[in-house]
Amino acid sequence: MPLTPDRRLQARIVGALALVVGVNGLLIAVLAWSVSHALAASGHPLQPESSLPLTIGTLLVGAVGLVALQARYGTRAVVSGLEVDDTAGDGPRNIDGRVRRLATQADVAHPSVAVADRAEPGCLTVGSQRSPTIVVTTGLLEALDDDELDAALAHEVAHIANRDLPVVTAVAATVAIGDRLLERERRLRRVLWATLWLAVFTGIGIIVLAVPLLVLGSLYLVWSAVARGLLGVNAITLGLFSKAREHAADRGAVQLTGEPAALAAALETLEDERPTRDVRIDASATLGIVAQPLTLETRADDEGDHWVDRWTPKLSPEFTEPDAVDRAVIVVSSWLREHVIAPVTTRVRRLLAWRPQTHPATETRLERLRTLERRRE
């Protein structure tokens, strides 16, 4: 039976698309403002400013064009970390034949199929609406049985039927940009920390390196604000349609296969075998069938404590023979560490570890599938 697009999901996608266009328009406006002021400072000012309607129209056209490019070529950013190979013939476990059959049932364009050599089980759909590609990992092919594999593939075909691919690909491309910005932020923080250490502990002096420290500190603050602002925008955009998108694809998969239990079993398997490494902002996670782990733990920059702890005072002095004053200092410093320093640093680490939610909770999806299964009985 052909799948018809979910109307409520379509409305949410329109809202998300408007937000993505607005963000790109703001980005173009900021770049244009920076270029015009840089040219003016160099003695080569631009022509007088155009009228406001023409300026807004130009920004809108540019933003729409930029979003179209992200939707068209964002796939490269999404799969950049995957070793993807096109399937030969029907591919392992007749995966191409399975996808063709499901696409025919759903009355959508037949997607191409590619396999990523990755141990983590997962699948996602990339590309344009007219020429989509379903990417599965070797880990997925090993983890699921035939019914579960059909259900997972049907979930991806349902995404194509719901026509949510262009906007989610554009969002995933933006997530990839945020991923790179945060990685650069981490490197910049290392440079800032090393420069401060060099200034304080090597005798060069804080005065000699004052200007580099000021420049690095300002650059770090701006970079961090941009990266985390982009995270916030991604969170709002994903919040508009991510849950509805996954629930609609689950319903579509059940329509195609008639087996809610098979999809539930596939989701449980994938949930149990999610990677433990921190890939929460990996662009492919935005398009995956299940969310990546959203723990509040943050990894250390290198080895040892988190970098936030390096900037907090150690308030537990040791004394070999403490007198009454020393004991009072120990008591007070221990209380401050437990009730003030530790809670603050924990909240800071959690704030820095925050990432936008890309999927509804798997348990919620399982409960809905169990409800569908009960209705079939």
Rank of each mutant, 00 (worst) to 15 (best):
365 R>T: 13
298 T>G: 12
277 R>H: 15
189 R>I: 04
47 Q>R: 14
182 L>I: 09
344 V>E: 05
302 D>M: 11
218 S>K: 14
75 T>H: 04
129 Q>M: 12
347 R>S: 00
307 W>C: 03
325 V>D: 02
354 W>H: 10
88 A>D: 15
275 P>Y: 06
113 V>A: 01
162 N>M: 07
21 V>L: 04
148 E>W: 01
186 R>L: 07
247 H>W: 10
376 R>L: 13
169 T>W: 03
366 L>N: 04
317 P>I: 13
256 L>K: 07
315 L>V: 06
168 V>E: 05
57 G>F: 08
249 A>E: 13
341 I>K: 06
371 T>Y: 06
2 P>W: 12
108 V>I: 13
141 L>P: 01
301 D>W: 08
170 A>R: 09
94 N>D: 15
350 R>K: 12
228 R>D: 04
355 R>C: 03
80 S>D: 09
161 A>R: 00
235 A>E: 13
201 F>Q: 10
114 A>K: 12
41 A>K: 15
89 G>Q: 07
59 L>R: 08
95 I>H: 03
50 S>D: 15
191 V>L: 14
246 E>I: 13
38 A>G: 09
5 P>K: 03
184 R>E: 06
139 G>E: 04
74 G>L: 03
281 I>S: 10
26 L>R: 14
233 V>A: 06
369 L>H: 03
345 T>Q: 12
246 E>G: 01
125 T>Y: 00
364 T>M: 02
337 R>C: 01
131 S>C: 08
85 D>M: 13
70 Q>D: 15
62 G>E: 09
332 V>S: 04
95 I>Q: 09
66 L>G: 03
308 V>G: 03
311 W>L: 09
262 A>F: 07
198 L>W: 14
15 G>Y: 02
176 A>F: 02
259 E>D: 15
3 L>W: 12
101 R>I: 06
250 D>F: 03
335 W>Y: 05
156 E>F: 05
142 E>P: 00
190 R>F: 07
317 P>A: 08
153 L>R: 04
343 P>Y: 11
57 G>R: 11
293 P>G: 00
35 V>Y: 12
101 R>F: 10
113 V>T: 08
109 A>S: 13
321 E>R: 14
79 V>Y: 03
80 S>L: 10
176 A>E: 04
47 Q>I: 11
360 P>E: 02
247 H>V: 11
84 V>G: 00
322 P>N: 02
66 L>Q: 12
194 A>H: 01
5 P>N: 01
9 L>I: 10
27 L>N: 08
29 A>Y: 11
161 A>S: 00
216 L>S: 12
49 E>M: 13
52 L>I: 13
147 D>T: 14
369 L>V: 05
253 A>Y: 04
36 S>T: 13
253 A>N: 05
154 A>I: 08
